[in-house]
Structures are given as C-alpha cells and as structure tokens.
C-alpha cells in the first residue's frame, strides 16, 4: 500500500521528535563534558614549557603514560582497594537497612529513605571534617576503643596506627563508606520494591527460615539493584579526594589527590591529564563489563 503524504509526514515527524527531546541534554553533555574530556587527550601527550608555569606544548609524548603508571600504579591500586573495601563494608550495612526499609518500614518508609539520604544533603567536605573530630585522638571513637582495652588488638590488626585512628587507612575507608551508603541503599530499596512480599510468605510457608529466605529469594531478586549500587559506589569512591585528604596521611593518598597534586603543586598538567585519563579508562572498563553482563534493563537506578 502506498503511504499517503500525510502519513509520510507523520513518520518523518516521529523520527526527529526523540532527537529534539534529547538535544538539550546532548548539547550539555557534549559541550561541558565530552569536549573538555577530549581536550585532555592532546594535553596528556604534551610537555610543560617550563617548570614554573602551566603552559604546555604538544609533542606526542606517549611516555607520559608510562611514567605516570610507573610512578603512581600503587596509588591507583590503593584507590581501587579503598573503593572496594568501603563498598563491601557499605553493602554489609546497606543490605539489612534496605531490607528493613522495604519489608518492615510500613508507613515510615518515606521517612526512613529520607533519613538515609539526609547526610548527602550536607557538603561532604563538612562531613569529612566532622569525621576528623569523631576519629580524632581525643574523639569518642578512640575513647571507646581505649575504654574497652582494644587498642593493642586494633594496632595488631593494622586498624590503628600507634593507637591512633586519624591518618590511617581505617579512617579513610570509614569516611568513604559513610559517603557511599545512600548510593548503596537506594538502588537496593528500589530493587526490593519489585519483590512481591508474598514471595517471602511463600518461602516461609515452604519451610525456609529467615536466612534461607534472604539467600534464596531476596538476594537473587535484588541483584539488579546490587549491580547499580556497586557502580554508584565504586566510581565516586575510587576518585575521591576529600576523605584521604582529611582522614588519611601521606600514605593514604588516593589517585584524586595525586592528580590534584600533579596539576596544582608540581605544575605537571600533562601528567595530571594522563593519570586522569587512565582513571577514566579503568572506570569505563568497569562500567562496560557491568553493562555487558547485567544489561541496562537490570540497572535499578533510583
């Protein structure tokens, strides 16, 4: 059948409509995100004109990458290590929390979700500074540890350093964990919302106790939420600047601090760009792997 001109017009309109709706977002992303990011590529292949300024000259200097990986490989590893440990710790807290909010929250559910999100509404700089007084030498946490006589144990396990909490990996991981918690809880709550309460009743009816109900029903059915929670937590944690700065010492610096240091202190813009791109690449790799295994449909984003 021949399409009437009118129908043809409709079809054409239908084709450009989605693009028109996407345009503002695309312009934003391309202009303010993609172009600056691409500008880093030539910068990362340049070298500084002098040791005292940020001016650079493009030289195809691939060696920047090798040097950066050689010098800062351990920092990259540490960053991802901290991110993984804090995410793992966060998950241990987030799963029971999300479960409680979803299945026991009742009419308090919106309030409970609000309480989880509330800390994120304050600047995370303020939160990190707050942590310094909590974890400080005269702070309540260390006071409790001392009172319980756990100082030697903490030292032995490497959680404390010379009886102190500040400037230890422990402090940085704790700070990161509290930052990431809402990003872990929300996707899990969203995923658990899709779990029919009757499935839990059915599991109980079929003689499964509490742990078994969690392991066989809640865990597998909340996995899409887990996947997006992992991404939402790992990515910002790996690139964090503030927590290592305030809660860690020189040995707890993460890749974000190193990039900042390269750019603003050492005036090595090309190396800073190279390191930033390496971080970008590693994170993109993680996202691509996730999307390939999980697929976009499974991402239960809040």
């Amino acid at each position: 059948m021949l399409a009437s001109p009118k129908a043809e017009g409709h079809r054409r309109a239908r084709r450009w409509w989605p693009w028109a709706l996407l345009a503002p977002g695309l312009v934003w992303l391309i202009g303010l995100y993609l172009l600056p990011l691409l500008a880093l590529v030539p910068l990362s292949l340049s070298e500084p004109v002098s040791r005292f300024g940020l001016d650079t000259v493009f030289r195809w200097r691939l060696a920047n990458y090798g040097e950066v990986l050689g010098a800062y490989g351990p920092v990259l590893l540490r960053s991802f290590g901290f991110a993984l440990v804090s995410t793992g710790l966060g998950l241990l807290l987030a799963y029971p929390l999300a479960y409680g909010i979803r299945f026991r929250g009742g009419r308090w559910q919106p309030l409970l979700i609000g309480l989880v999100v509330l800390p994120s509404l304050t600047s995370y700089l303020v939160r990190a500074i707050g942590w310094t007084s909590l974890l400080g030498d005269n702070g309540p946490v260390l006071g409790l540890i001392t009172a319980l006589g756990l100082t030697d144990l903490g030292n032995g396990l490497g959680l404390l350093r010379d009886g102190r909490l500040l400037n230890t990996p422990t402090a940085v991981v704790l700070g990161l964990t509290s930052n990431q918690l809402p990003f872990l809880v929300l996707p899990l709550v969203v995923a658990m919302q899709r779990i029919d309460r009757r499935l839990l009743e059915a599991a109980a009816d079929l003689h499964a106790g509490g742990l078994r109900r969690f392991r066989l029903v809640v865990w597998p059915l909340s996995r899409p939420g887990l996947a997006s929670a992992l991404l939402l937590s790992l990515i910002p944690a790996a690139g964090d600047v503030v927590n290592p700065l305030f809660l860690g010492g020189p040995n707890e610096r993460m890749v974000g601090n190193t990039i900042e240091n390269l750019l603003l202190v050492q005036l090595q813009a090309p190396r800073a760009a190279a390191l930033a791109l390496v971080l970008m690449a590693l994170i993109s790799l993680a996202v691509v792997l996730q999307l390939r295994t999980g697929g976009l449909d499974d991402l239960a984003l809040p």
């Binding site: 009757r198 499935l199 009743e201 059915a202 009816d205 079929l206 499964a208 029903v217 597998p220 059915l221």
Partner: peptide, 20 residues
Amino acid sequence: APPHQRPVNLVFQNYALFPH
C-alpha cells in the same frame, strides 16, 4: 509457631511462584 515450622502448605491466590 512461625509459618516455616508448621506442617501445612498454602497455595497462594496469585500463586507467588519464584520468578527466578
């Protein structure tokens, strides 16, 4: 007694089959 310790089983109205 909690449900999982009762020797009875329920056929749910909407079946409540485990989708996974």
